[in-house]
């Protein structure tokens, strides 16, 4: 089954949402079927207005082993958060 029915990752944009969010994965023989399965499995309760599917093997993921190297250096740089700065009175609509 896994050879003929590869895994696809499913992303759904909800009615009020602006971006597609990962909701899960499923098996399908091709992209068209993956969209249909995603519709039947993940939007039965009106969860979405748009579907993206992508073959799971096509996703390039970061290596958990490298998590320290990738993410640790950001820990001591809290000043990168916009909330770190006081906003002047004159600045509206930020």
């Amino acid at each position: 089954m896994s050879e003929d029915w590869p895994l696809f990752e499913v992303f759904i944009r909800s009615r009020s949402g602006l971006e597609h969010k990962h909701v899960g994965s499923l098996h399908a023989t091709d992209a068209r079927m993956a969209i249909e399965h995603a519709r039947d499995v993940y939007t039965r309760r009106q969860e979405g207005v748009s579907i993206w599917v992508v073959r799971s093997v096509d996703i390039v993921a970061s290596d958990p082993e490298e998590a320290d190297a990738l993410f640790e250096p950001a820990r001591d740089k809290v000043y990168r958060h916009p909330t770190f700065y006081a906003i002047p009175e004159e600045v509206k609509n930020l």
Partner: peptide, 10 residues
């Protein structure tokens, strides 16, 4: 397949 089960039921 599980997915087809749901598809046909739909």
């Amino acid at each position: 397949a599980l997915e087809e089960d749901l598809g046909l039921a739909n």
